[in-house]
Design a protein around this nucleic acid. Sequence first.
DNA 1: CAAAAGACCGGAAACGGTTCCGGAACTGTT
DNA 2: AACAGTTCCGGAACCGTTTCCGGTCTTTTG
Lengths: 344, 344
Amino acid sequence: MKHVSETAQRLNIRQIADLAGVSIATVSRVLNGRGDVSEETRELVSRVIRENGYTANRSARGLSAGRTGLVGVLVPLVFPAYFSGILAGAAEALSERDFQIVLSPTGGEHEREVSIVDRLHGLTDGALIILPEESSEELERLLDSGFRFVVLDPLMPLEERIPSVSAAHTSGADQAMKHLLDLGHRRVGQITGPRGWVATEDRRRGYRAALAAAGILPDPTLEQEAEPEIDPGRAAAEQLLDLPERPTAIFAFNDNIAIGAIQAARARGIRVPEELSIVGFDDIEHATIVTPALTTVRQPLAEMGRTAVSLLMRLLEGQRFETLHVELATRLVVRDSTAPPPHG
Amino acid sequence: MKHVSETAQRLNIRQIADLAGVSIATVSRVLNGRGDVSEETRELVSRVIRENGYTANRSARGLSAGRTGLVGVLVPLVFPAYFSGILAGAAEALSERDFQIVLSPTGGEHEREVSIVDRLHGLTDGALIILPEESSEELERLLDSGFRFVVLDPLMPLEERIPSVSAAHTSGADQAMKHLLDLGHRRVGQITGPRGWVATEDRRRGYRAALAAAGILPDPTLEQEAEPEIDPGRAAAEQLLDLPERPTAIFAFNDNIAIGAIQAARARGIRVPEELSIVGFDDIEHATIVTPALTTVRQPLAEMGRTAVSLLMRLLEGQRFETLHVELATRLVVRDSTAPPPHG
DNA sequence: CAAAAGACCGGAAACGGTTCCGGAACTGTT
DNA sequence: AACAGTTCCGGAACCGTTTCCGGTCTTTTG
């Protein structure tokens, strides 16, 4: 009686070839849908493959063919809340194309001196880099080293050659401000994100442009800066609300900061939106469950993910591009945190 | 003048060996910290490696050594909200051990007939399977095929041999109920999760046990079932609140359902917690920003991730175990959604 | 009908590592 | 001085694919 091996051995292309009575070259051709195989043989081999549940060893394929079917996704270790939206879009687009995702958290304290290249080069075919902390120079070096990638939502201004996908910050901010101004607000405070970020500067530009269009001079005391989290947002909002002549509306850099602002208002007994209107940015899930539900500028997160993937795919195919930068439209979602100003 | 190649060619172990004047076997030994290398040689080779920024091609290593340094993480395509907590813990633990994560969304409609094995076998060394939709039988087959994995938070009861990590559902539910009973509630409704889930049945058990301990007979009309999302939670809560004699408190299967319950109460003008207490489960971020902030049972998500990783690692090392099931303690976090019952 | 073209297939050389095995040089023992 | 035992190192087999190249057999062409 034959002994049954404890763990079924995974079979390889050689065994499939023997089973089908063909060469391994032919099996490989069937596997990859290449030509030079008769219809008859193709079906025979396909059947054997199916019946035995065979799949090619991906390491071997990667070694031999140079492409691994893997795409890296680099993301800050502490996920920004809106990351899951991007990931969902990217994941869907990638799995449609039969790619797998290698998720690589960056910025952890355990992080060795190994760079992106070291971790992903030779493992993945390319990468999506979300909110990179790397400078434009570092990314250029990466590009020059032959690694293909697309940057999503760059923090810093990027050199022309670096492919990137982002949202229309300026126009989003402009829409948000127009909404507030249309409601009749004249003293609108702003809580910006960290200085130097592309998103911060672009949204600030939208804020100023809308004010200017309404003939309102920007008041520097109405601008605060905060890290894009709830607590810093609350602190910044407190500054604005404690002003001798406080604003009737606040445009926040993102939803987290806006939620902090709601908390600050509540702590002072200031009613939102009756006495204070608040607008956020991003439209993360939190925006819908907070009270009052947040009026905010929606970023098309899933679409950003999908777009980045399709850009990357074309890059991998070696296509050259006229434009490497894609900016996706944003749109205002009006909920319950905005209303006309008091006595007005 | 020598032509500079457009994209710097990645160097391989052969070139490093030549540069250092040793054999590739020696370089490999240094790379992997193996013995049989003099301290002198080791330093020399290390220096060359460092100076040239060399890293081993992971496909080649995977092929040759059988281990790839990759761990699959299988997760439902639509992330449950608490997934990011688990992932954060797992990611940290994995990167400490120099493993990379292959994120594989399951259950997408584009999903081919390819199974877990097909996608991950031969690519990763093992996997973390979160909230698997597979039956215990399918997972057993996977186990028998020689694939190593750990299940996190199984939906269905699992066979003994399948390694798993979960939270203490029953005791968490019991704590939540004790809290409500201590506050003086006697009519406590329950919104359970989908029938058949381990978590549903375990938490229901805790609910019943606590009632029994307080000498209260369970009232079937006070039990509703709902999918673990906000909208179904609201619908289920409406049923309970429209009862002729409505409950003074609701124990919800998870935070999403609890948030739905808050919304249902608000829509009816029922004040939380003055007229209705609500307790959730999970302690996701939403619980802290909703109004009122949710009293809930915290699952140690990051720790579950870390624990699963360390279990998997020991599995990969071929260790045998006395116990393959780990249950992590949960604990009640009291916030603002619970209070003594009215007229009480 | 001979020659050219085309369809189909197999052998074998990569790809870049890891590891077994054997050999050289050195050390210590009798 | 001969020998055994260590330490250190290099050659080469091997992992499982893809793909180039060339060969056979059939079909088309002049």
